[in-house]
Nucleic acid binder design. Sequence first.
DNA 1: TTGTAAGCGTTATCAG
DNA 2: CTGATAACGCTTACAA
Lengths: 342, 342
Amino acid sequence: MVTLADVAKRAGVSSSTVSYALSGKRPIADLTRTRIEQAITELGYHPNAGARALAGKRSHIIALVVPLHPEVHVPTMMEIAIAVTVAAREHGHDVLLLTNNEGPDGVRRVAATGLADGVILMDVRLDDDRVPVLRAEQIPAALIGLPDDPAGLSCVDHDFATAGALCADHLADLGHRDIAFIGYSSGVYRRHAGYAERTLSGFRARAERRDLRFLHRPCEGSYESTAGTLARILADRPETTGFVVQNEAAIGPLLTLLRASGRTVPEDASVIAICPDPMAEQYSPRLTSVTSPKKDLGQVAVEQVMARIAATAAGDRPEDQLLLMPPELVVRESTAGAPRRT
Amino acid sequence: MVTLADVAKRAGVSSSTVSYALSGKRPIADLTRTRIEQAITELGYHPNAGARALAGKRSHIIALVVPLHPEVHVPTMMEIAIAVTVAAREHGHDVLLLTNNEGPDGVRRVAATGLADGVILMDVRLDDDRVPVLRAEQIPAALIGLPDDPAGLSCVDHDFATAGALCADHLADLGHRDIAFIGYSSGVYRRHAGYAERTLSGFRARAERRDLRFLHRPCEGSYESTAGTLARILADRPETTGFVVQNEAAIGPLLTLLRASGRTVPEDASVIAICPDPMAEQYSPRLTSVTSPKKDLGQVAVEQVMARIAATAAGDRPEDQLLLMPPELVVRESTAGAPRRT
DNA sequence: TTGTAAGCGTTATCAG
DNA sequence: CTGATAACGCTTACAA
């Protein structure tokens, strides 16, 4: 194994000089620097991560905790995980993947052993049991999702309330009066998942202000359950002409079922989905949707942890950040003016 | 921070004794052991990962390289990633998440710096450029997927050839004679993705033996592209009664389109999908499918790297393993005897 | 601008 | 069964 000392010898300098040349923490003469760089490539030197972590008191690793059985859309989760990894690399960090089956202990473990400098939590619940650990152990962290008490934490999430409101506004603007809101499975609401509740309450508030009548129906997302949900909606409120779908899995079945029931989208029924852009584009007709903001949640979360790690290292109290990223409404082919009452 | 030395002092023993008590690498008197355990819990000791890696020459981390833009089914990938993480923990290891945008250098980096003890590669291509690095640097590794030359490597994958053959057999058994094989997008075949080619050739070989006529058609998986694909199939070979779908994304559109074209599944057309069980269950009618084996690829891959890490540490030459896991055919509601020719 | 040297917290090799 | 103690490879005051 090639060590710093080997490089130093070859370059004819001391090992501290090599170290500083690599970290940039003090000025190095140009000549020295080039000699060092040459020695490094000639020898094929790679700094040892363990030694670096031990001496430097930072592992240059951040942990990403993913849910074991995500109740959210998996591809979206994966996209965030990848964004986190890429962004972390740009900050000179690697990403350790933790699943949530270790629970709060997993978070404690990686922080206490110095394996990770900071932590990013995905799929955060309102009363998340990992949050107390973060507070107690003062672990630099960023949450993707909003717990009920975000004091002392940095969090980022979609602004789901606004997303809900945008849906209500758009349908109201088009003259629809009776709306069905097809949500996630009832278990999600029972567990008080923040995103689901916030979307719904944002929608409800705006719907009331705009004098819309609406039904909220949980839905599993399978073909069968969507069929049942739709049948009940049409039975309870046959005059329904607008549909808001939050459960990504229910979108396909819903379109198929509406067609099967003889309703054409958007002439007879308008559908608006809360989902990522590419997904909205892929259906026929292409869906009007309320979509994630451009900047990825994962990227923001990385910036938030990095800021907290830096502050902690400098001995400062890290600044709390709470960022709700506003969604955008993109009008496509699945919404149109409400059909005339006959 | 609580160190080994602190624990040793508190327990009234030397630090080496504590170390051995923790690693179990030499016998410890029961009394001593309990005293040490008590000291550890009283002080809340957590071994420092960096120091451990430096002194022990193993990081207890394995790297998992995921594709940046997976052309395979994302939830399946995520499932593997999670299985890897869980299995790794059971072996006392953590998982470092690498995206493939660092290319072969990423693999070299984590191995050379000692960040990771071993590597698991996902989405392996036939002529994967990361493979030479593994060979050259003798990095303990396991591949999920099969490169063209697996010599000196451990690999695990589905037995796609058998999957293809099972599809051909089942449809032939039911009396179908004209089959359409709806594959992945043409780019996948152009890139010589192993899984796609192997499925197809397994299917082709068996189809020929069973005297089936068949068309292979690549398909993007979007609604539009599936519509185009199906239209061409029915134009080229109107007598087609059996469909094999490998592209998961095309399943939903295909079912919708068949229905739209007036064909009932399975009375007029049989559909068999190559996809995970839960996915097959979720359609209507529930799909006859060829499905992944019970034991997760990720879990096997972890066992393979761990074996190679152990061998390397012991100074032995690691044993190459090549495991193709046989799929299972599950008959559900989407296949039936071929309709009578009229 | 550079060098010296004292750690960082474990592991593992000797002795005992 | 247990204790000293020398690595492990790097970072960072402190000196020059």
